[in-house]
């Protein structure tokens, strides 16, 4: 039985309300994020993804509606400490998180979060070391200034800074942007591992391959409204919707669609290369290939 980690009800958000710069970012969003799953959030730039994530992390006050994270519920009238309580459950890795590093050494920077949580110096150090270990961050670099590191290393330090707080829910805003292919794979494997250990993952991404491969649930936003909430397979099998939201389909889906156009329909939309291969084998056995 899956329980909700986050429940969002009739959530709306307007930037700078009542001024010439007012902009409606989210309109009446209802959404349940299930505990222990990987939820991918997709949509165009400016579709409201980041606003939604900031609301979940208590960084913005909703204009109307409510957000419940674990047992904490916030509404537009909630007090400041309720929003701070949201942040106790949620870890947020911002886009290009390496731009938030500031401390004299890598270890100190990673300890910043745990210390803010009220952990003792000793515990904070342990949390930080654990987090850095998980990211396979070289021990000999931990006393160095974070500004001496390479881009990929800085990214890992920044992510460790969030992991060290041991959040039950982890939001990652395009965590692989700007990383090389091996760095990307390594990071996605780590995210998968964290998920297997029980962390609820929310992943903002523009990479549909990542959605197909890693996500249990996909949520699509367009113009601040929820336009899809379901399994990746059912999103990608709806070619019209994918196009309407302005998403690119994963390579395997594109391949299947071309086969379909050539008169070779597959049983189900393949999300991985393995699935695609199996589908093709099945189609051949059925003899659909013979009319070529």
């Amino acid at each position: 039985m899956v329980e909700p980690a986050i429940e969002i009800q009739q959530l709306s958000y307007t930037y700078s309300p009542g001024t010439a710069f007012a902009a409606q970012a989210l309109t009446n969003v209802n959404l349940t994020i299930q505990r222990g799953k990987v939820t991918a959030v997709v949509g165009h730039t400016g579709s409201g993804k980041s606003t939604l994530m900031q609301l979940i992390d208590g960084l913005l006050k909703p204009t109307s509606g409510s957000i419940t994270v674990q047992e904490t519920k916030v509404t537009p009238d909630s007090a400041k400490k309720d929003f701070a309580a949201l942040r106790q459950h949620v870890g947020f890795v911002f886009q290009f998180p390496e731009s938030q590093l500031f401390a004299d050494s890598v270890l100190e920077d990673v300890m910043f979060g745990p210390l803010n949580q009220g952990q003792s110096e000793e515990n904070a150090r342990r949390s930080a070391t654990d987090a850095l270990d998980r990211l396979h961050f070289p021990v000999e670099l931990r006393d160095h200034s974070p500004f001496e590191l390479s881009g990929g290393q800085m990214r890992r330090v920044a992510i460790a800074g969030v992991l060290a707080m041991k959040p039950a829910i982890l939001i990652l805003d395009e965590p692989t942007a700007g990383l090389d292919p091996s760095g990307r794979l390594e990071l996605m494997n780590l995210i998968q591992k964290l998920n297997q250990e029980g962390t609820t993952i929310i992943l903002i991404t523009h990479q549909m391959e990542q959605v197909a491969r890693y996500a249990d649930v996909v949520v699509a936003l367009q113009h601040g409204q929820l336009v899809f909430d379901g399994q990746p397979r059912s999103l990608f099998s709806n070619q019209q919707l994918v196009e309407q939201i302005g998403l690119a389909e994963p390579n395997t889906v594109a391949f299947a669609n071309q086969l379909d156009q050539a008169g070779i329909p597959l049983q189900q939309t393949p999300l991985t290369v393995q699935e695609l291969a199996n589908e093709i084998i099945e189609a051949r056995q059925k003899g659909t290939f013979n009319n070529e």
Partner: peptide, 10 residues
């Protein structure tokens, strides 16, 4: 953005 990131870190 930076203030939000640091607030997210408690």
């Amino acid at each position: 953005t930076i203030m939000n990131a640091q607030r997210a870190r408690g």
